[in-house]
Nucleic acid binder design. Structure first.
Length: 569
RNA sequence: CGGGACGUGGCGCAGUUUGGUAGCGCGCAUCGUUCGGGACGAUGAGGUCGCCGGUUCAAAUCCGGCCGUCCCGACCA
């Protein structure tokens, strides 16, 4: 490619509405342009990077026996009604009608369609299978943000495994785990696998691949010794046991005028420090009230409640719902003596005595509460948000909480979708068995963004060789110097002949402009050809990532660059 | 959905408080001088001031409604 003929609209200034480094640089470098919130056009440079990312993904999927499909992006409602997701998935699912009035939707993911196709298999001999596709999905996210990091329309590789039994599913899961590890290595992003919630999709053995970045949207609890890493949506920690002062008498009421918060109560009474209180929250779960109890100084992780209750229909109750239920406003609630409401308690409360909690009467609390004696807990469920500094469940070292970008997610689906669409096969005994499915996703655009988050400096992007839009740029410093032009052209042709992705900067621009652009768009190697070097029979080779500069004889330049590019691929 | 901010040539912004018919930098075009780290001079092109309505002799500016975008939170397959 000749730069003079390329569409690479670089910008001198940062776009005003971009915060994240990847967003800023991808726009400035002419890789992407926004069409609307959460929707971006890939320009030629962006498309080149995306194509390389896809090629790596395709490579690794094929290596574990994956077979590629191309699926429709508009689906009929009936298939989604079968799995219940037509009604269950709210908000992000775009629904519309065709001219006949048939209900349609824009695919947010493709479980239904793959499961439907899988129902054509009828024998255990057809299994196992790994199917994938790399396609556009549309999710009407409530808040797209940060450029390619969180969008509504995006390209994603989705794969699904089909097995006769759990052992087969385990095997498919492990293969994907290995494939993903290799993909992230090749993309040169530091992605770590972490335990995760599988969310509304349902499933078990969920692993997210996460890349540390301040622009991320997930918090991950990480053990500094590498013994543990989990999304805070499901992370746990080891807590010190609390030795409670004995309290022999019954529960005792005491007046707490105007006190509505844990902190205020702790300030007012020295026996009511945060860890000595029971925090009582009322949630509506599938329309039914549930009293959720935590230690006073602990916070609820709502996703854990969602996972534990097995339904996505979980929300905090409104004060108007709480008052008739418990007789008090939030701030004075408690579970002592409560019988008709389901009570879910965090295990950090187990065995605790001499606790303080609301009396279900405004301006009153109770002390001397013994969990086992005074509160009829229905379910013990870990619903606590892990805090930084708490002990790693593996080695006891203090956990760190880090912001991360989710770049991939793999989990075991089981039979939810195959059941719904009737994907069954006969096993060796002639018994009908429902196919076990696994689901494995990786976002193309989000990985591009993650790479940029990992590989940039104040000058711009520094792409890893594997996905750089061009592997080398030959920069002719002086376009009206015939010798420079001739040497540049020769080098350019030589590199092309050897299969290097090279662009020739033949623009009639000042050198500074050319250098700055090359650095902004992040081409790994720049070969500068100009009269100064040519006088000594040399060209200049600059490595973008390190800034290292070396002089190379004109005659050796092509060979050296080809070598460097090949080893770095 | 809650909170905040913004919308003026391609990009970044001023002008809005105090109404008088739009300006700056960059970019772009032409010419000249320059030329190994974002040159300089001259000339020039380019704007329904997000949209609709209202007030007024007159609206980028005041009022009402709507739309869009960004940030924080909620949410997130």
């Amino acid at each position: 490619m000749r730069w003079s003929q390329a569409f690479i609209p670089t910008l001198r200034d940062d776009p005003a509405d971009a915060e994240a480094a990847s967003h800023r640089l991808l726009v400035r470098g002419g890789f992407i342009r926004q069409l609307m919130a959460g929707s971006y056009s890939l320009l030629p440079l962006g498309k080149r990077v995306a194509a390389k990312v896809e090629r790596i993904i395709r490579d690794e999927m094929d290596a574990i026996g994956g077979q590629e499909f191309l699926l429709p992006v508009v689906h009929p409602a009936e298939v989604w009604k079968k799995t219940g997701r037509w009604d269950d998935v709210e908000g992000i699912l775009v629904k519309f009608r065709d001219r006949r009035g048939a209900d349609l939707l824009l695919a947010i993911t493709h479980e239904e369609i793959f499961a439907l196709l899988a129902s054509e298999m009828s024998s255990y001999r057809d299994l196992p299978q790994i199917w994938y596709h790399i396609q556009t999905k549309f999710r009407d996210e409530p808040r797209p943000k940060a450029g390619l990091l969180r969008v509504r329309e995006f390209t994603m590789k989705d794969s699904y495994s089909f097995d006769i039994d759990a052992a087969g599913l385990d095997e498919a899961f492990d293969r994907h785990y290995a494939a993903y590890t290799r993909i992230f290595e090749r993309l040169d992003v530091e992605a770590i696998p972490v335990e995760a919630s599988s969310g509304v999709m349902g499933g078990s053995d969920s692993a997210e691949f996460m890349v540390a970045s301040e622009s991320g949207e997930d918090d991950v609890a990480v053990c500094p010794n590498g013994d543990y890493a989990a999304n805070v949506e499901r992370a746990t920690s080891r807590l010190d046991t609390v030795e409670d002062e004995p309290w022999d008498g019954p529960v005792e009421r005491f007046a707490t005028p105007g006190i509505r918060t844990i902190a205020a109560l702790a300030d007012a009474f020295d026996f009511a420090a945060g860890p000595q209180q029971v925090k009582s929250l009322v949630y509506m779960v599938d329309g039914e009230p549930v009293l959720v109890l935590l230690r006073g100084d602990h916070e609820l992780m709502e996703q854990k409640l969602v996972d534990g209750m097995g339904t996505a229909h979980v929300r905090p109750a409104h004060p108007e719902e709480i008052r008739p239920l418990l007789g008090a406003d939030p701030g004075s609630l408690g579970a002592v003596g409560v019988k008709d409401i389901r009570i879910v308690a965090d295990p950090a409360l187990a065995g605790r005595r001499n606790m303080v909690t609301g009396a279900n009467e405004d301006d009153w609390h109770v002390r001397g509460v013994d969990l086992a004696r005074d509160i009829a807990v229905d379910d013990w469920l870990d619903v606590r948000l892990v805090q930084a500094g708490e002990a790693c469940p593996g080695c006891g070292a203090p956990l760190e909480i880090r912001r991360m970008i989710e770049v991939g997610h793999i989990f075991k689906l089981g039979t939810k979708y195959s059941d719904a669409v009737g994907a069954r096969v006969l096993d060796e005994e002639g018994e009908e068995r429902t196919i076990m499915m696994g689901s494995y996703g990786i976002g193309v655009g989000r990985n591009i963004a993650a790479v940029v988050e990992n590989h940039h400096d104040d000058k711009g992007i520094a792409w890893p060789m594997s996905i750089a839009p061009y592997e080398a740029v030959v920069t002719i410093v002086k376009m009206d110097d015939a010798a420079s032009v001739a040497a540049g052209e020769t080098l350019y042709e030589a590199l092309r002949a050897d299969g290097v992705d090279v662009i020739l900067d033949d623009r009639d621009e000042r050198p500074g402009v050319k250098f700055t652009d090359a650095e902004l768009i992040g081409i790994p190697y720049r070969i500068t050809v100009g009269p100064r070097g040519l006088a000594a029979g040399e060209v200049e080779l600059v490595e973008r990532a390190t800034g290292d500069v070396e002089q190379v004889a004109v005659a050796d330049a092509a060979r050296v660059v080809v070598e460097r590019v090949r080893t770095a691929r």
